[in-house]
């Protein structure tokens, strides 16, 4: 494999609070190749978004990276100064947020927002920046882009606005895009269009994508590989088809079992009993063990190894399908 676009190594994010230090991201590692789409799934609070924010250097204080490394195209970026990180944001790492209704400045025409981003990162003049803004809008499928470039965000529908947001994230041609729940706020009918658009643009340009979502359907449709997160840790990481068809971690098994598509024909969808523990109250060992039907004594001691006989995918003592 050539050099990965992004390499996250044992990333730890901590939030100091009065009640003690919380770890919303705990030793997360993954690599991302050019043009690859990595889906990150998990429940709310599993650390999906926090990992993305840590990569792009936009953690809200007091959260901060306390361990591990983030390496972008061979360069370590988690230790860079704010000023140098700013030049990476937008230029080399783009970001797409959940709600297109609130991610655009309501008082500026979309063309102005695009042009300012392009002019900030690329050595082009005003006229060229505007021309590129129109082209960026055309690429994301905004009809009559040359006229719409002077429209304000409120003059677009939700799906169109998310296209504008995607154009903004991609306009300086970054090598990596972090899409944080890009379809959650949209109508179901628009979701598939947006995912298809994102997928096509990134394939064409060889842009790597971290697709954060809690929707397994979106993952199945778009991602090459999937990372399943639970309580700040990676539970399982592997190619989408394999993870969906042969989940190794009991948590993934539960998630896949709860998908309507995978459970077709079954009378009832599977349900994982209980709820994810709050960060301040994580059980020792594997955080999933109180809800796991396979849990034994070992699970309370340690999250468990990634066993080679199970493709090295899941951090579990007793991965599904390899039970001793």
């Amino acid at each position: 494999m050539t050099q990965p676009v992004l390499s996250v190594r044992d990333l730890v994010v901590e939030i100091p609070t009065r009640a003690g230090v919380l770890r919303p991201v705990d030793k997360v590692s993954y690599d991302l190749a050019a043009g690859e789409i990595l889906g990150v799934v998990g429940e709310s609070g599993a650390g999906k978004s926090m990992t993305g924010n840590a990569v792009i250097g936009l953690l809200d204080r007091p959260a901060r990276i306390t361990g591990g490394e983030v390496i972008l195209q061979g360069e370590r970026i988690d230790t860079l100064s704010d000023a140098r990180m700013r030049r990476i944001r937008g230029r080399r790492i783009g970001m797409i947020f959940q709600d297109p209704l609130t991610s655009l400045n309501p008082l500026l025409p979309i063309g102005a927002q695009l042009a300012e981003t392009i002019a900030e990162h690329l050595p082009v003049g005003r006229a060229e920046a505007r021309a590129r803004a129109v082209r960026a809008l055309e690429e994301v499928g905004i009809p009559a882009a040359a006229e719409r470039v002077n429209s304000y965000p409120h003059e677009f529908s939700g799906g169109m606005r998310q296209r504008v947001v995607i154009a903004l994230a991609l306009c300086a041609e970054p090598v990596l895009v972090i899409a944080d729940e890009p379809t959650t706020a949209l109508d179901v009918s628009v979701q598939a269009q947006i995912i298809a658009l994102l997928k096509r643009l990134c394939r064409e340009r060889g842009t790597a994508v971290i697709l954060v979502t809690h929707d397994m359907g979106v993952i199945a449709e778009a991602a090459d590989r999937v990372a399943v997160m639970y309580a700040g840790r990676l539970a399982e990481l592997g190619p989408v088809a394999e993870v969906l068809q042969r989940p190794r971690h009991p948590y993934t098994e539960g998630l896949v079992g709860s998908m309507p598509m995978a459970a077709a024909g079954r009378a009832r969808l599977h349900q994982i009993p209980g709820a994810m523990p709050r960060l301040g109250q994580l059980p020792p060992g594997c955080a999933f063990h109180p809800r796991c039907r396979y849990a034994r004594a070992e699970c309370q001691r340690d999250p468990g190894p990634t066993r080679a006989d199970c493709d090295g995918r899941a951090a579990c003592w007793f991965p599904v399908g390899a039970r001793a």
Binding site: R89, F97, T102, S103, P106, E116, T117
Partner: peptide, 17 residues
């Protein structure tokens, strides 16, 4: 605290802008 300010940060705009 608004999302569009966060998004402006994520686009690498300068603090002054």
């Amino acid at each position: 605290r608004a999302d569009y300010i966060r998004f402006a940060r994520a686009r690498g705009l300068r603090d002054r802008a």
